[in-house]
Write a protein that binds this DNA or RNA. Structure first.
Lengths: 224, 224
DNA sequence: GTCTATATCGGGATAGAC
DNA sequence: GTCTATCCCGATATAGAC
C-alpha cells in the first residue's frame, strides 16, 4: 500500500516534471505558467507546488537529473587511459557535460538569472549544489592526479578546473551562434591553453609567477 | 512658477528614489514592492509609475547617478601623470569605483542576483548598460595608451581590463571579510599580476602564448 | 503637469478544507 | 496528497482632482 501510494505520488511528480520541461522547451521558461503546467499534468496549481516549491525548482530537478546521468561519461573522460593526453581528457569532460545538457539548453538558461548569486540555492555556486560541485572536483582531481603538478599549485587545480568548465558551460548557455559553434571553438582553444599553462607551471623558471597565481587563487577561494 | 513646479516634481521623484534604494538595501530587490515604495514615499502607486516606468527603471537611475558621480575620479586615475606607474593607476581606478559604490554596497548586492543574465536590464553585461560600459572602456583605453602594447593584443586590452575591474567589484560585493579586507588584498595582488602580464606581453619571447590569448579573447568577445 | 483612487489582469505562491 | 479559494505582486488603465 505504502509503496503503491509512493508509486502513484512519484508518478504525479514525474508527470508534472515532464509537462513542465516540454512547455519550457516549447515556449520558454518565463512564458510558461505554473497554471499551465498544472493543467497540462491534470492537477490543480496547488498540487504542482506541493511537488515543486517553485518554478525554478523544476529546472533544478532537471539539472540534478542531468548531472546524475552524466557521471558515467565524466568518469570515463577523467580516467581515460594514461595514453590519452590531458588536453583530450579535459575536452571530453566538458563535451560530456554539454551533451547531457543539450536537449534542454534553453531550460537551463533560466538558472542563469540566479547564477551569480552564491546566496541563491539554485546557483551553481550555492549551498544546494555543493555536493554536485564536490563530486565534479573529485573527477577533476583524478584527471590531473598523474600530472606531477607542483606542490603549491596542485591542491587548487581541481577547483580552478571546475571554474573553467563552469565558465565554458555558461558561455555555451548564452552562445547564440549556430549550433553553438563558438563554444566548440572556445573549448578547443581554451583546453589547449589550460593544459599548456599546467605544463608550464612545472618548469622551475615559472616559479615566481606561479607563486603569484597561487596567492591570487588562495585569496579568491578564501571567500567562497 | 515653472521652476517651482519642477522643483516640487523633482522632490517627489527624489523621495520615491530614496525610499526605493533604502528598501532595496534592507529587504532586497525582489522583495521590495512598488506598493511599499509608493507608500513609503507618501504617494499613490500610480505616482511611482508616473516617475519610474518600472522597478528596474529605479535601478537604472541609480546606476546612472553612481556612474556620473565617479567620472571625475575615474578620469583622474586613468590619466594620472606618466610618472605614475600603470599598476598604481589601475589600482586607483578600481578604488574610485569601490569608494563611489560603498554607500550603496547593499543595493548592489541586492541586484547581484540578476547580474549574470545579460538579458536582464539591470545586468552590467546587458544592452541597457552598454553606454556606461563603453565609457568605462574609453577611460581604460586612455590608461594604457602610452604602454606600447603589441598590435594584436592592444585593441582588446580595454575590454579585458573592464572585465577585470568588474570581477573585482563583484568579488567586493560578496566579500564578507571585515571592511572587505580581502578585496583590498585581491586588488593589490591582482593589479600587480595584470600589469606584469601586460609588460610580459611585449617581449618577443611570449608571442606564441600571446597569440593564443588573443585568439581566446576574440572568440569570447565575438559573442557579446 | 502632477498626482489620487480604484479597477483590472495575469502570474507566483500559499492556506486550509477535504 | 490533492484541490479550491485566496492573496499578493507588477503592471496597466481610467477617470478625475488640483
Amino acid at each position: 500500500m505504502t509503496s503503491n501510494k509512493m508509486a502513484r505520488s512519484e508518478e504525479t511528480r514525474r508527470r508534472i516534471y515532464e509537462v513542465a520541461l516540454a512547455a519550457f522547451r516549447e515556449k520558454g521558461f518565463e512564458e510558461t505558467t505554473m497554471r499551465a503546467i498544472a493543467a497540462g499534468a491534470g492537477v490543480a496549481t496547488g498540487a504542482a507546488y506541493y511537488y515543486y516549491e517553485s518554478k525554478e525548482a523544476i529546472v533544478m530537478a532537471f539539472y540534478a537529473e542531468a548531472w546524475a546521468s552524466m557521471q558515467e561519461g565524466l568518469g570515463a573522460a577523467a580516467e581515460a587511459g594514461k595514453k590519452t593526453p590531458l588536453e583530450a581528457r579535459l575536452t571530453r569532460y566538458v563535451e560530456v557535460k554539454l551533451e547531457a545538457f543539450a536537449p534542454n539548453r534553453g531550460v537551463l538558461r533560466a538558472l542563469l538569472r540566479n547564477g551569480a548569486d552564491p546566496a541563491s540555492p539554485v546557483s551553481p555556486f550555492g549551498r544546494e549544489t555543493a555536493p554536485m560541485r564536490e563530486a565534479d572536483m573529485v573527477w577533476l582531481a583524478k584527471m590531473v592526479a598523474d600530472q606531477g603538478l607542483p606542490k603549491d599549485l596542485g591542491p587548487h587545480v581541481p577547483a580552478v578546473l571546475w571554474l573553467y568548465q563552469m565558465g565554458i558551460v555558461m558561455f555555451w548557455l548564452i552562445d547564440e551562434s549556430a549550433g553553438q559553434e563558438r563554444t566548440r571553438e572556445l573549448l578547443r582553444v581554451s583546453a589547449k591553453a589550460v593544459t599548456l599553462l599546467l605544463q608550464l607551471s612545472k618548469l622551475p623558471l615559472t616559479r615566481p609567477i606561479r607563486r603569484t597565481a597561487v596567492e591570487l587563487i588562495e585569496i579568491v577561494r578564501g571567500v567562497a
